[in-house]
């Protein structure tokens, strides 16, 4: 899962990015409005954490413009704490609203919930046959036995599980698994796919040659 964090305070931006990366997300950063809007429009993010008071273009304007083209889940993370601020933020099309100072665990839970809603997943534990993917604990177990996965492998499993029943292209996987800091080749996706196949079983993900990957229900 790839997340864009927009925050003008450098310390807060760094901390947020680190916390999200440690939770297994790919994270891009922006510290002012214009670049944030450009990133949000161009990139394929699973969620955006957006401050309101920003230089050049404020969070509300970014969200308004973004909503013309994209339905990316957006969480406002702001010091604007009045009821009017919250109502306005949510009515502009934000998916969630969290007031500073905030609790890190709560922020992460809200991001998870937002991503689940976006993929129309209700149960935080996704069950597929004998596999159970606990998106909160970030654990995959087969027949009740935990399977050891790296953070990146888990992120790929979760992404595929969220997209189950549909075709997933390699570009899509690449875009959602790696942030802009990553300059690896896109064939890295194939490497990760083969790794999770060996750990979860060959049938977990099927290859559609020339199109991408498919995960059944």
């Amino acid at each position: 899962m790839r997340i864009l964090v927009v925050e003008d305070d450098a310390d807060l931006l760094a901390g947020l990015s680190q916390a999200l990366r440690e939770s297994g997300y790919a994270v891009d950063q922006a510290d002012e409005g214009n670049s944030a809007l450009a990133l949000a429009k161009a990139g394929s993010y699973d969620a955006i954490i957006l401050d309101i008071m920003l230089p050049h273009l404020n969070g509300r304007e970014i969200l308004t413009q973004l909503r013309h083209t994209r339905s990316t889940p957006v969480l406002f993370l702001t010091a604007c704490d009045t009821i009017d601020d919250r109502v306005e933020g949510l009515d502009l099309g934000a998916d969630d609203y969290l007031v500073k100072p905030f609790d890190l665990a709560e922020l992460l839970a809200r991001v998870r919930a937002m991503i689940r809603r976006h993929h129309d997943v209700r149960d935080p534990v996704i069950r597929m046959g004998d596999l159970a993917i606990d998106t909160n604990a970030r654990l995959v177990s087969k027949d009740g036995v935990p399977i050891e996965l790296t953070a990146r492998e888990y992120a790929l499993v979760e992404l595929l599980a969220m997209k189950r029943g549909g075709l997933v292209t390699r570009t899509f996987i690449y875009d959602h698994l790696f942030d802009d800091n990553h300059d690896s080749m896109s064939n890295l996706v194939d490497v990760y796919i083969s790794r999770i196949r060996s750990k979860l079983g060959k049938d977990f993900v099927k290859t559609r040659r020339g199109e991408g990957y498919f995960v059944g229900n």
């Binding site: 305070d9 310390d11 807060l12 901390g15 947020l16 916390a19 010091a79 704490d81 007031v99 500073k100 100072p101 905030f102 609790d103 890190l104």
Partner: peptide, 10 residues
């Protein structure tokens, strides 16, 4: 709020 968030966050 912002410096408080920074502290609590880190």
């Amino acid at each position: 709020r912002t410096p408080l968030s920074v502290m609590s966050m880190h």
